[in-house]
């Protein structure tokens, strides 16, 4: 890999890693996703660190083309996007749970109030 691309990939994956870890620790991501995303970030980092190993796999698979970078770029974009969705999804399901709890409590209070009134 040319040194330029290596540096670029290194910067990219380190920022990916730091970004994921910071977000995953602080945002309301479900533990299940937080683990998943940590693994993804680690995987990205490992590409830079164990470049030789990945290269041998790529050669084995017959990937030597430069268009490979396009695919990597696309996949990275999708990763970020899916990450964003999983944060949103976590937030949504927490909110839905909250809504279920409150609407059922409300329905209960209305029902009790009604029954009390009908009895009077």
């Amino acid at each position: 890999m040319p040194i330029f691309i290596r540096v670029l990939l290194a910067i990219f994956s380190v920022s990916f890693f730091v970004g994921f870890v910071l977000l995953v620790r602080n945002k309301s991501v479900k533990p299940i996703y937080s683990f998943l995303w940590l693994m993804v970030a680690l995987g990205m980092l490992s590409i830079v660190v164990f470049e030789k190993f990945y290269k041998s796999i790529a050669t084995l698979l017959g990937i030597t083309d430069a268009s490979f970078m396009v695919i990597v770029g696309l996949i990275s974009f999708l990763l970020v996007y899916v990450f964003y969705i999983s944060i949103k999804l976590s937030e949504m399901s927490d909110k839905i749970q909250e809504l279920i709890s409150f609407s059922s409590m409300l329905e209960h209070d209305i029902r009790v109030y009604r029954e009390k009134h009908e009895a009077d």
């Binding site: 059922s104 409590m105 329905e107 209960h108």
Partner: peptide, 26 residues
């Protein structure tokens, strides 16, 4: 008996516990 009814199933018993905490808290 006094009861509360979820409008949808939460997909597991944990949702009941969440409501229970909210109820007990408020």
């Amino acid at each position: 008996a006094d009861y509360i009814r979820h409008p949808v199933n939460t997909g597991g018993s944990a949702g009941v516990i969440k409501t229970a905490f909210t109820y007990a808290y408020y």
